[in-house]
Design a protein around this nucleic acid. Structure first.
Lengths: 129, 129
DNA sequence: GCTGATTTGACATTCGTTCTCATCATTTCC
DNA sequence: GGAAATGATGAGAACGAATGTCAAATCAGC
């Protein structure tokens, strides 16, 4: 049997939330928002669907200082995030210089299979007023 | 009243472990290593002392993919880490270009109070054989 | 509609970390 | 020196995010 990815109400609901937001949110945030708008979706289901979306590279995930994983719908391809500390609003940024620098430094020290994580945090204009 | 930081046996033991290692380790790793060598130190104490050291900027902390916090004695000043995925061995690296780039990008988008996190992961020479 | 594999959800469980609080150790003050 | 104040410890409880369990519900294809 072919592995079918079903189009369930719950999955659509989770994706709908993500489509509306341009900030990183936790799984529990999404769960709360869904309950608020009357959609009944189990917490496990939210986690499962988010994991599926991450595996499909349709959303990006990162951890905040508290160790919570935050999710956000993102464009394809390698990029980094400029995240507002207050409201979580996020801008995707690219930095070719950084990529090449990281690779070069790693190779200099004999490291292979190089990957890197880079996030920039700050206070956005509307939050700093 | 002067706030004294006491030099206890347990604190010295935790610092001793950190001094011997050049890889990132978890609090529980340290706890295990201490028990192995016969030092009896409570887990809470290990966590507390690590937190103190982080606050004093004497050790750096970062999270691995599993959400565990890893600790390592580090030199002062802003730097980044090149970490081996297999053995955890770490090289401190500096990248002035990255710093200025991150600041510039953030300011372009109206962000203030800018900070960033950057870690490079790879497989070190001895682990790739 | 039927069928059967996928998905869901309530609940239990795991795991790293923090909290609590009684006890022990060190300093301070007389 | 000795008593009181303050700091540090540790065993276990508590916490919270995340994952596992499994019977019941649900969707896709016929």
């Amino acid at each position: 049997m072919v592995e079918v990815v079903r189009n369930t109400r719950q999955r659509r609901a989770v994706q709908a939330i993500l489509d509306e937001l341009e900030s990183f949110v936790s799984a529990q945030d999404i769960h709360d928002k869904l309950r608020h708008r009357g959609e009944k979706v189990g917490l496990s289901t939210v986690y499962r669907n988010l994991q599926t979306l991450v595996d499909a590279s349709e959303v990006d995930a990162l951890r905040n200082d508290d160790g919570e994983v935050l999710y956000r719908r993102c464009s394809a391809g390698h990029h980094h995030h400029l995240v507002c500390r207050q409201c979580g609003r996020t801008v995707e940024v690219e930095g070719p210089t950084v990529e090449t620098w990281a690779d070069a430094v790693a190779r200099e020290h004999g490291f292979t299979d190089v990957a890197h994580t880079l996030e920039i945090f700050g206070t956005c204009r509307s939050c700093s007023r």
